[in-house]
Computed example of a mutant assay.
Amino acid sequence: MRRSWLAFAAVAYLSILAAVIHAQPVQPPRTLSAEMRAALERVYTQALPASVRIETVPEGTGSGFFISADGLVMTAYHVVEDTRGFRVIDSKNQSLSAELVGYDEFRDIAILRASVNEPVPFLPLETTSGPSVGEPLLAIGNSRGQFIAPRYGIVNTVERDIFPFFNSIAISTTIPLAPGDSGGPVLNQAGRVVAVVVAIGQPNGVFESYLSPLQGLGEVIAQLQAGRKRDVPYIGVQLFQIDDETAATLRIPKEGVLIQGLLRGGAAERAGLRGFAIRRENGQEVYEFDVILEADGRPFNNVTELQRYIRSKEVGDTVVLTVRRGQQILKVELRLTPNPTRRS
């Protein structure tokens, strides 16, 4: 019997900078004119003193920038996530100890506090408006062995969905970024930070770089500065999309999403949900499994759509799942938790 359908889509957040993203087609890149580049080069000169390199343990490199005179640094959360330690290297090549203040895993941004002995230059944030398609932007980063170097490019789209590599909606650009640039500031021609570097990809063979926008996040950033730590919520399951072969093999309707496995310690395991299992009875294979039909009364037949709905919630929120188990339809209430594979 064929069992290719046993492959599954895990509920996991892949926050890797060099991800290959398979997304919708993009429009051809626009050309960065000499005038645009010259304007951005002037912005780079002004922004350089407030830009930093972030070095992590285990060995890793990221980018960031000061957002206050007393040493607050903004970066991408995945730069410092699950590290044993990190330090900030400023534009004068001074090594500064630092600690994590707050983060928002959903948007992949974090605030650090670097130990500074005097006021430092910092970059203004643009949270009331965002960049537009075709707008030239400057990113500052630490890839390719370079130190706080400029990268220039054009906005392709302002609403790129690259889930699950990035939980929120990204800005896509032609900026030639690489590993080490993640967390760096992205500035407009007015010298204001409009986004943070989070990922790169190559949908349909066309290179793109992806940014986490700051538009509308004034209050969120203030909360992070005050110490808020927002994890992405999880059900704690491994899911599989029910296709025609799966439905025929299991003799079930082609609706809902199948629970292939449970993440140990997750909300689903604690709520008594069941992962897929095979047992033998009277010489025959018997399949045991749960299928999620609805979440909070909303039907879901697509793994990505269900994941997106859960990620939009908060850790600690309660979700009611409608589940098919054999001939039974169950209502299962569970409390969303952080990723159980990374946190006890």
Rank of each mutant, 00 (worst) to 15 (best):
R343D: 05
G236N: 04
P58H: 09
R228D: 09
V194Q: 06
I16W: 07
V320S: 05
V194R: 07
D108F: 02
R308N: 00
S344M: 14
E288N: 14
I242T: 04
T322C: 08
T31Q: 12
D244Y: 13
R84N: 14
P203R: 07
A190N: 12
Q215K: 15
F163P: 01
N93V: 13
E245T: 15
V220R: 13
D290F: 07
F165D: 03
L334A: 09
W5L: 12
V220G: 05
N301I: 06
M74Q: 07
V186R: 02
D104L: 10
R3G: 05
G272T: 05
I310A: 01
A248V: 10
D161M: 11
V88E: 01
M36T: 04
Y210F: 15
G261P: 01
Q225D: 03
L334E: 02
E55N: 14
A50L: 10
A114G: 08
L177F: 03
L112C: 04
F276C: 08
L6K: 14
P203S: 06
T318E: 14
R30V: 02
P233I: 01
P119C: 09
G184D: 01
P28D: 04
G227N: 05
D104Y: 06
V193K: 11
R160N: 10
E81L: 12
D290S: 10
V186L: 08
P338C: 12
R87Y: 06
A9Q: 15
L123C: 03
L306E: 00
Q328F: 11
T322P: 02
A170G: 05
P164R: 12
N339Q: 12
S91H: 12
S33P: 05
E281F: 14
M36W: 08
A110G: 06
S129D: 07
P49H: 05
N282F: 12
A114E: 00
S132A: 14
G297F: 05
R311A: 13
G201H: 03
A226N: 12
I148R: 08
V286I: 14
L177A: 05
R280L: 11
V80R: 02
Q46C: 07
R270P: 00
A199E: 02
H22V: 12
R230W: 09
A10R: 15
T45L: 13
P233Q: 05
I259H: 02
L187D: 00
R151L: 10
E35Q: 14
V257M: 10
K92Y: 08
G265F: 07
G266A: 11
R151V: 02
T45N: 10
L321Q: 00
Y77A: 09
T45M: 11
Y309R: 01
F207E: 11
E314Q: 14
K313Y: 01
L273V: 04
T157F: 11
E99T: 15
L187C: 05
L211K: 00
P25I: 04
I140F: 07
G60C: 08
Q24C: 08
F300Q: 04
G153Y: 04
V193R: 09
Q189K: 11
S95C: 10
T127L: 09
Q225A: 09
I200V: 15
G62L: 03
P119I: 07
T304H: 13
F276T: 00
I242F: 03
I292K: 04
I140H: 07
V116M: 08
Q241D: 03
A18S: 15
E126C: 07
D104T: 07
T337V: 15
N93T: 12
V133S: 09
L330N: 02
R274G: 03
T127Y: 06
R107N: 13
